[in-house]
């Protein structure tokens, strides 16, 4: 789909050029949008591609963020190594969760990860000596100076790298196997696919990327709080991915940027924005299960071809 590559290239150029003409406020908004785009696209890989509908994705972001910050804070580990450690920890936790949920599907998996995420949040609140609880953990920034531009470009490059990594993974047979598992796990096993291995693998990869998002978010915002893990945050990530297209990783990333950007543009409407978000989530799922971009391209391509190509990412 070269046309979609062209669109992606244009979007990337626009993102690179934005700080040149937009004010510092929008640079700040953009830098936060990259955090959500990382989460939404990696969640789309986990839930849309592999069919593992997890509510714990933002908990992995918090795990990565808190772990790297605490390691620097308590053991004086340099931030770079702290980040790597945070990501590795998120991957290990992802492997563990992936292994635990092997037998759970659909709503059972959703409930399990929801409960797990809630336990993790309550631990962050309760273990005040370590995490400073609801007051939040101060995280020193990476880049000096007042400007958010370094974060903007750093976050953007993380996002692009993550999208390329995931696209590369999906182009191998792993992508094929993940979709086979999503469509019918038992049939995938009967076809010789080691479903255990690939289900754990997708949890490891996506948890690592969520952890990466968290390690980026902390130093940029300057504070980590347990509210990163509240259900509405996860709801926001789900809504972003569903609206952008749960089976298209760039679609989910763009969905995240659009949803976050729109919510900033319409700040004066306060809580009404989230009413609309809930409504949009239901309507998109009801009428456009592959996201709004699939609807936009539908008239241009024959429907079966769209589906086949979309599936391949």
């Amino acid at each position: 789909m070269t046309r979609s590559h062209a669109v992606q290239a244009v979007l990337l150029i626009a993102a690179l050029a934005l700080p040149a003409w937009a004010g510092p406020y929008w640079v700040h908004v953009g830098a936060i949008a990259w955090y959500y785009a990382l989460l939404a696209s990696s969640w789309a890989l986990l839930a849309g591609y592999a069919g593992q509908f997890s509510f714990a994705h933002v908990a992995f972001a918090a795990l990565g963020g808190y772990a790297s910050a605490l390691l620097s804070l308590h053991f004086g580990i340099p931030p770079g190594i702290g980040v790597v450690a945070g990501i590795v920890l998120a991957m290990v936790a992802g492997a563990l969760i992936g292994w635990l949920v092997l037998r759970l599907t659909g709503p059972y998996l959703a409930l399990f990860t929801l409960a797990l995420s809630e336990i993790f949040r309550l631990m962050l609140v309760a273990e005040q000596q370590l995490t400073r609880g609801s007051l939040g953990l101060q995280v020193p920034g990476w880049f000096g100076g007042e400007s958010d531009r370094p974060y903007y470009y750093f976050g953007l490059s993380l996002l692009v790298a993550a999208l390329l990594l995931m696209a590369g993974l999906l182009r191998t047979r792993v992508g094929l196997f993940l979709r086979a598992i999503r469509d019918d796990e038992g049939a995938a096993r009967a076809a010789g696919v080691n479903t255990t291995l690939y289900k754990i693998l997708v949890f490891v990869v996506t948890s690592g990327l969520a952890g990466l998002a968290g390690t980026y978010y902390g130093p940029f915002v300057g504070i980590l709080t347990p509210s990163m893990v509240i259900l509405p945050e996860m709801g926001l990530v789900i809504a972003m991915a569903v609206i952008g297209g749960i089976e298209s990783l760039p679609g989910a990333a763009v969905g995240a940027v659009i949803v976050y950007g729109l919510s900033e543009l319409t700040r004066e409407y306060g809580q009404w924005r989230f009413v609309l978000l809930g409504l949009a989530l239901i309507l998109v799922q009801r009428f456009a299960q592959n996201g709004i971009f699939a609807v936009l391209e539908r008239p241009l391509l024959r429907p079966p071809a769209v589906e086949a190509e979309r599936g391949r990412g």
């Binding site: 086979a180 995938a188 599936g311």
Partner: peptide, 15 residues
């Protein structure tokens, strides 16, 4: 029990 949202060819190359 096919991989319903994959193409016929993809169904065959998985195994």
């Amino acid at each position: 029990r096919l991989f319903r949202r994959m193409t016929v060819l993809e169904n065959l190359i998985v195994p």
